[in-house]
Amino acid sequence: MNKLHYSLDEIPPILLAILALMLLIQGTWMFQDARKRDRFPWLWGLWGITSFPGPLLIYWLVVIRTDRKRHTRSKRNR
């Protein structure tokens, strides 16, 4: 078999458990933060448990960064 592809039998169970835990933590945090910001929490939470760290980076660019820009603009206009 090609050395770039692994079967689940070749990956240690502890690594799979760590990956599952990371995905669960990431998805939970994204869901809670999106709910706090009122920005489609179920979408971000479900997408957060699919892979790591892509959804988190895109969440930061789309949600957190735009909210910070909006917040600093509103402070300047006061």
Rank of each mutant, 00 (worst) to 15 (best):
L23F: 04
I25M: 06
R70E: 11
T72K: 15
P55M: 02
P55A: 00
P12S: 09
M30R: 00
W29F: 13
R73S: 14
I64S: 12
L23G: 02
W44R: 02
F40T: 14
W47Y: 07
A34N: 02
Q32K: 14
L16S: 09
G27D: 04
L24P: 05
Y59A: 05
F52P: 00
G27Y: 01
P53Q: 01
L19P: 04
Q32A: 13
P13K: 14
R73M: 15
Y59G: 02
W60I: 12
R76P: 10
F40G: 09
A34Y: 00
A17Q: 13
E10N: 01
R78K: 14
G54Y: 10
S74N: 12
R65F: 10
T50G: 04
L8C: 03
H71D: 10
L8A: 10
I58K: 08
W47G: 10
T28G: 05
I14F: 14
R68H: 12
A17M: 13
R70L: 07
M1T: 12
L19H: 08
K75Y: 11
W44V: 00
T72I: 15
N2C: 11
A34I: 00
I58F: 11
Y6S: 11
D67S: 08
D9L: 08
M30C: 03
G45T: 05
G48E: 01
W42K: 09
K36P: 04
I11V: 14
L43R: 05
N2I: 06
T72M: 13
T72H: 15
I49D: 09
A20T: 08
W44L: 01
